[in-house]
């Protein structure tokens, strides 16, 4: 994933960090990079905290526990990231909607995809409602990735209330 992402220019958020892939791995790989790991499940956050301190990353790695839909509305997090990464967070529409609220203008969203990525999973009309634009879909090594970019400011209505993005996906 790091190979796919290339250069980064600002704080990174891992949406649904879970067991630490990819956020924790990326934090380890990018010296000096500020990374926030977000997960809704207490147990996983406890694990992440432990892992962060064991790896000596505590100075630049933060663990946040909570639902993405809520945290994306906090002033401290909204539009606070130059990049959001996600792996296995949810269907494309859910991932995009939740991520949009965290991205600053021009910020990038990088999501893992099946090894044979298919562009139609990320339709332009759906993405444009969120202010996102498809940048590229590629296969790197044995995994697929898609990169999207937030054009302009994120629209205030996204993401919707907790649970709504997955119950009524945009596409």
């Amino acid at each position: 994933m790091a190979d796919f992402i290339g250069e980064i220019e600002g704080p990174v958020l891992d949406l649904g960090a879970g067991g630490g892939v990819p956020g924790l791995v990326l934090a380890e790989a990018w010296a000096g990079q500020s990374v926030t790991l977000l997960d809704a499940m207490h147990r996983r956050c406890v694990f992440l905290e432990t892992a962060v301190s064991k790896l000596g990353l505590a100075a630049r790695t933060t663990v946040r526990e909570g639902r993405a839909e809520e945290l994306a509305r906090r002033d401290s997090m909204r539009s606070g990231f130059a990049m959001v990464v996600a792996r296995g967070f949810g269907p494309p529409a859910v991932t995009a909607e939740c991520a949009a609220g965290f991205l600053r203008a021009g910020g990038r969203l990088v999501v893992s995809e099946p090894p044979e990525p298919r562009a139609e999973r990320w339709p332009d009309d759906g993405l444009s409602r969120l202010g996102l634009q498809h940048v590229r879909t590629e296969r790197v090594h044995d995994a697929g990735f898609v990169e999207l970019r937030l054009v302009g400011e994120p629209a205030p209505q996204w993401p919707r209330r907790t649970g709504v993005p997955s119950k009524r996906p945009l596409w």
Partner: peptide, 11 residues
């Protein structure tokens, strides 16, 4: 399988 495919359960 999810890990291999890199996607979420619902997909």
């Amino acid at each position: 399988a999810l890990d291999r495919l890199g996607v979420h359960e619902e997909e």
